[in-house]
Simulated assay, not measured.
Amino acid sequence: MNFAQLLFPDFSLILCGYLVCRYTALNRAVWEKVESLVYFFLFPVLLFQSIVRNPLDLGEASSLIVAGLLMGSVAIALSYGLPYLPVIGRHIDRRDHAAAAQVAFRFNSFIALALAERLAGARGLQLIAVLIGVCVPLFNVGAVWPMARHGQTGFLRSLLRNPLIVATAAGLAANLLGFRMPGWLEPTVNRIGAASLAMGLMAAGAGLQLASLASNKVLTVGVLAIRHFIVPLVALALALALRLDAVQTTVLLAFSALPTASSAYVLASRMGYNGAYVAGLVTLSTLLGLASLPFALGVLR
């Protein structure tokens, strides 16, 4: 499989946003409004639709669900624990860590869906949809918690006001209740979802400042090592321990090695944190996917 071809659209959109913001009249003032549109409308619609699109068969995929939730919990715990590690912890800025922690465990759902279909056809697509449906609520809560805690805002209040979490919870409830998007509305919703992906990635590029990565080297290495090296190893151990079948193991390994979510930048920026730094992490994570996906699906599998 050509992973470079799979990841090129995301990386090229980030680069496009960077160039447009730096070298045209569409400067940061314009892109701040774009970020608000993506955060409060486009991304929530995308999340809701991606969860209700396919029925969640929780019984058939119970072992895979357990593996996905355990893998995500380990990644969240490792990410939260970085500032408390001996020696390296004192080199990590706590505020930047609050914004960057999410990079270690969140994932790009569009790449997940495309990859699963290529690897395992219709069954792979269904299994990855189940993982997305059960893991997105956990990961979104995990992403918001350190920023709400560090910003000394109420955690519950931050969750209830976060449009990404509200959309995720609504989508999961609607799926379990049997709701399906009406056929006449689905093309419109799909186009909104496609627009959210493009605009979110371009907004990440517009906010990109690679100098921020150099000033946070320890944190950068820590979150990206968790995302692209440690989490695939955890996934393999869980697949063996829970005796997943071949297709479930393939889907879990692919899920474990994905680049981080492009919405990580939008979330950090809109909650008042260092969005430029998180944008740099999103860019690096997209590039590192060229190594972690072959590592997980080739070496580990």
Rank of each mutant, 00 (worst) to 15 (best):
W184S: 07
I65A: 06
N140E: 05
I92C: 05
L113P: 08
L113G: 09
F110T: 07
R157P: 05
S109E: 13
A101S: 14
F179T: 04
L78G: 01
L127A: 05
L156D: 06
D57F: 12
V166P: 00
L172D: 03
A75N: 07
A170T: 03
A114G: 10
G121K: 08
R180F: 09
L177A: 09
G89K: 00
L159A: 10
V66S: 15
S79I: 01
L78D: 00
G121D: 04
S63E: 11
P163E: 09
A174T: 02
A101C: 13
T168Y: 00
L172S: 00
E117Y: 11
G133P: 01
L156S: 10
A101E: 07
S79W: 01
P86A: 13
L115E: 00
A98S: 13
S73N: 06
V66K: 15
H150P: 12
P146C: 14
Q126L: 15
H150W: 11
V144Q: 03
G142M: 02
G68K: 04
M71R: 06
R157W: 12
L69S: 14
A99E: 08
N162F: 07
F179I: 09
A169Q: 00
Q102N: 11
S158M: 04
A100V: 03
R106T: 08
I88M: 04
P182W: 13
P182H: 11
A170E: 01
I111K: 03
P83D: 06
P83R: 02
A170R: 01
F139T: 00
L177N: 03
A116K: 01
Q126Y: 09
I111M: 06
R180Q: 09
S109Y: 13
A100I: 03
L177I: 04
A67P: 15
S109N: 10
M71T: 10
R161N: 06
V144S: 09
R106G: 05
F155D: 08
V87H: 05
T153L: 08
V66D: 12
L138H: 02
H150L: 13
A173I: 08
V166K: 01
N175V: 01
G183K: 04
R95K: 14
L113K: 08
M71I: 13
A129W: 06
I132Q: 02
M181Q: 15
L78T: 01
L138A: 04
Y84H: 06
G121R: 03
A174W: 05
A101G: 08
R118G: 15
L69C: 14
F139I: 01
S62N: 13
G171R: 00
S79R: 00
L82Q: 00
R180M: 06
G89Q: 00
L56K: 07
A98D: 07
T168E: 02
A101F: 05
A77D: 08
N162L: 06
